[in-house]
């Protein structure tokens, strides 16, 4: 177990290095003088020079990189030259709504996707299976922001059942918060639910063909017990991996859906920063989410080892 943990931690290093290089590189992908582009055509020579100095753009690239990594490690992601606040501060202010939205969508997706996938596998080839798979295909084919717009139009504008846009923090009343988050969460969770349903179905079908399922049947175990105890427990491993791997997409998707519903989270921050060409903030968001993604998958790996004895006791004979 300790050896396994060690290997997983070591495997993080190259990925995080690439993440750092790419994120750092973003600033230097700008054609021409980054500072001049960021400030726009109206900026004076002195302003540009001041920004170059404050961004450290006059230093050699390699020095810039290591000083950037150094300060990033201490939690200093620079200062937004547009808002004038430290990027870390701006980020954390916007993080709450995004996390709430992503969590709610994820919970919805699991609650819908897993049972649907089990049903489809259990009744493989029947109408129920085809219905679930058709639903999943729709879920994958409708991008979340588009589904959000359609839901907004139907339930907000035409039926008037739910608020069209806006955000209420859960601290100000859970019921209200849920009313505002309902449409965005459904819009965001649908693709996730579709992916989970597909994965669950495939994983369940895969376990059905395994010999230990035959053993269970030969033991006289009831079909229900066999399904939940023997098949689902084994299928859980790839399902959890899928959830972990799509979580990054979910958070990024949250950013897009936020824009649809005017939720003041990371997404709006990014969109506003793109308009302002406030690259330092964008860089911070990208770094934060990529690192979050890597860490989430690290924890999924650890969880995997808890669930799968073959990994837990690595070094055994298989």
């Amino acid at each position: 177990m300790a050896g396994y943990l060690m290997r997983r931690v070591l495997a993080l290093v190259p990925v995080l290095c690439v993440v750092a290089v790419v994120t750092f590189g973003l600033m230097h992908m700008m054609p021409g003088d980054a500072a001049a582009v960021m400030l726009g055509p109206d900026a004076s020579e002195e302003q540009v020079e001041a920004l170059r100095e404050s961004l450290g753009l006059n230093e050699p690239l390699i020095v810039q990189f290591f000083s950037w990594v150094g300060s990033a490690l201490t939690g200093d992601l620079g200062t937004s030259f547009f808002i004038g606040l430290p990027v870390t501060e701006v980020l954390f202010a916007a993080l709450g709504p995004t996390i709430n939205l992503a969590l709610l969508a994820q919970v919805l997706a699991i609650l819908i996707g897993v049972p649907a996938g089990i049903l489809a596998a259990k009744r493989q080839g029947t109408g129920a299976d085809q219905a679930v798979m058709a639903g999943a295909l729709m879920g994958i084919s409708v991008p979340s922001f588009l589904l959000g717009l359609f839901l907004m139009l139907i339930f907000g504008v035409w039926l008037g059942w739910l608020p069209v846009a806006g955000y209420v923090p859960p601290e100000d009343g859970l019921a209200d918060a849920l009313r505002y988050l309902a449409l965005p969460a459904v819009a965001l969770g649908s693709m996730q639910a579709a992916l989970i349903a597909r994965m669950t179905r495939t994983a369940m079908l895969d376990t059905f063909s395994k010999n230990y399922m035959k053993t269970a049947k030969a033991k006289g175990v009831r079909a229900r017990v066999s399904l939940y105890k023997h098949a689902l427990r084994n299928a859980a491993l790839p399902i959890i991996t899928t959830i972990g791997q799509t979580l990054g997409t979910l958070i990024a998707g949250a950013a897009v859906v936020e824009t649809v519903f005017n939720i003041p989270g990371i997404g709006q921050l990014v969109v506003n920063s793109v308009e302002r060409r406030d690259l330092v903030v964008i860089q911070g968001v990208v770094l934060l989410i990529a690192v979050a993604y890597v860490l989430i998958n690290f924890f999924v790996d650890i969880l995997y080892s808890v669930l799968d004895p073959r990994v837990r006791f690595a070094g055994g004979d298989s």
Binding site: M29, P31, A255, I282, V286
Partner: peptide
Amino acid sequence: AFPAILLAIAIMAALG
């Protein structure tokens, strides 16, 4: 490790 849409936004922000 970068979600597709986010990396695309960032690259677009840099490239124009």
